[in-house]
Every structure is written in structure tokens, then in C-alpha cells.
């Protein structure tokens, strides 16, 4: 059986908010490393991988691996009843047909109990190879979100080039073209506001802006975002949390 308690309901609320527009039905795999999720969007262009590690839970007990088949829209309806500061306890039996969610407010004078019906979702699991990326860029998540939104008004695709000068996002569309170049700027006082680039080799790839704008919904999870690129492999966009992460992989657009 599973029993997992989060001090702050906002952790799960924010994660579900970040991925609910990309995937609809997915398995929350509960095991002794915590709660994990991996799912592709319907068109198989993007993959999201999430991990809430055991250390992030005030209490975590999972006797055997449990897959919780959940419709994220339904889960979000239940999570709306939780205040961000409520303590949230998730409970499920082995091979469960429902997930119990209990929200307790900090004054301890309101306790809310919900049961969410579970689904049978047979989703194949994909192997994500460890990759030495050609370029790894760490930057403010708000900055990345602004760039993706601005360029998505001009074009459907963005070319991302990482060189030792910096990282350049450029696009061309019917109304014209645009480009944003960020230079390495560590910002020693406030590292989370800086941009750092680790370059093993120059990289140039093209991606769909619609997906990048979608991924940026996760910006509330972290002040910074890490973008990892290598030629000919999917882009990795990672939002780190204190005890876990949400990662998005996006397949590139390939020129003939």
C-alpha cells in the first residue's frame, strides 16, 4: 500500500498544472524512490518525465510498486479543493481502483477527503539514454518563457544555436523574422538571474515553438531552467524542484 504526505499541497498542484496540457492520461508510478511519471503527448513529438523523490515527502511508505492510472483533468479538479499550504496525504491499496487524497489546513480545523477513481493505462515505458550534451544552458525560466512567447508570434519553428559566443534563438515567419541572443553572464550576486553556457561542441537545431511555449507552463516550478542540446537528439528542458524535477524532451525538426 501507498501512504505519502506532502507538507505543501502546492508541490503536486504545480506539477499537475505544468503537465496537464501536454498529456491527459498517465501512470503515476509509486516505488521506493518516490512517485515517477513518464508520458508522451498524443503526437509523440514530446515526452515528459517527472519525479517527486521520497525525501520530498514528510512521510512516505510504499510496500510494493503501484501504478496509479490517472486522468490529469480529473486529478486537477480534486486538487483545486486543496489550498497551497494544506498538508496533503495520498493513500492507495495495492492494485487500487481509487486514490485517496486528504487535505488538512494549517489551523488543523478543516480536513477534506476525496477519492479519485483510477484508470487502467497500459503505457509503454521508453528508455531515455544518458546523454553527454553538446551544450547545456542554465537561464532564468521567466526569460526562456518570454523568448518562446515572443518568437512564437512570428513563426512555428525556432532555430537554436549554441556557440562559445552564447545561445541564439532565431525564427522566420510570414511577417518577418526575429532573433534573441543571450551571452554568458553568470551574475555572481544572483546566480538564478544569470545565464551560463557549457559548450562541448557547437549545436544547431530547429524545434516547434508550440511545444516550447507549452513546456514553459512549468516555469512556476523553478526560477531557473536548464536547456540541454545535442545535434540530432531531442532537446531536454529541465525544471528542478527541491526534491525532484519535471523534464520535457522535444524531438527536433529535421531539414531534408
Amino acid at each position: 500500500m501507498l501512504e505519502a504526505r506532502l507538507e505543501q499541497s502546492s508541490v503536486l498542484k504545480k506539477v499537475v498544472d505544468a503537465i496537464k496540457d501536454l498529456v491527459q492520461d498517465c501512470n503515476f508510478d509509486c516505488n521506493d524512490s518516490g512517485i515517477q511519471l513518464q508520458a508522451m503527448d498524443n503526437s509523440h513529438v514530446a515526452l515528459v518525465a517527472m519525479h517527486l523523490k521520497t525525501e520530498g515527502f514528510a512521510l512516505y511508505r510504499c510496500d510494493r510498486n503501484i501504478a496509479l492510472g490517472i486522468n490529469l483533468v480529473s486529478l486537477q479538479k480534486v486538487l483545486r479543493a486543496a489550498q497551497n499550504e494544506d498538508v496533503m496525504t495520498l493513500k492507495a491499496e495495492d492494485s487500487p481502483d481509487a486514490l485517496s487524497l486528504v487535505f488538512e489546513n494549517s489551523e488543523n480545523d478543516r480536513i477534506s477527503e476525496y477519492d479519485l477513481k483510477l484508470m487502467d493505462i497500459d503505457q509503454e515505458h521508453l528508455g531515455i539514454p544518458e546523454t553527454e550534451y553538446g551544450a547545456t544552458v542554465k537561464m532564468p525560466s521567466a526569460e526562456f518563457q518570454r523568448i518562446c512567447r515572443d518568437l512564437s508570434l512570428l513563426s512555428e519553428s525556432v532555430a537554436i544555436e549554441a556557440t562559445k559566443e552564447g545561445i541564439k534563438f532565431s525564427c522566420t515567419g510570414d511577417i518577418g523574422k526575429g532573433a534573441v541572443t543571450l551571452r554568458q553572464n553568470p551574475n555572481v550576486e544572483k546566480p538564478e538571474l544569470g545565464t551560463t553556457i557549457e559548450l562541448q561542441e557547437p549545436v544547431a537545431l530547429t524545434f516547434s515553438l508550440k511545444y516550447l511555449v507549452n513546456f514553459c507552463k512549468a516555469s512556476g516550478l523553478s526560477n531557473t531552467v536548464t536547456i540541454s542540446l545535442s545535434n540530432e537528439v531531442p532537446l531536454l528542458i529541465e525544471y528542478e524542484m527541491e526534491h525532484g524535477y519535471v523534464r520535457f524532451y522535444l524531438a527536433p525538426k529535421i531539414g531534408d
Binding site: M40, S43, H44, V45, A46, L47, E124, H125, L126, G127, I128, P129, S157, T206, S208, V233, P234, Y249, A251, P252, K253, I254, G255, D256
Partner: peptide
């Protein structure tokens, strides 16, 4: 002309 590639061609099913 660029065309979109797909995740399963990079990550194989376990």
C-alpha cells in the same frame, strides 16, 4: 523543407 521527427525514433520502448 524541415519536417518534425518523433520521440520513439530516439528513445526505444523498454
Amino acid at each position: 523543407e524541415v519536417r518534425q521527427s518523433y520521440i520513439p525514433s530516439f528513445f526505444n520502448t523498454l
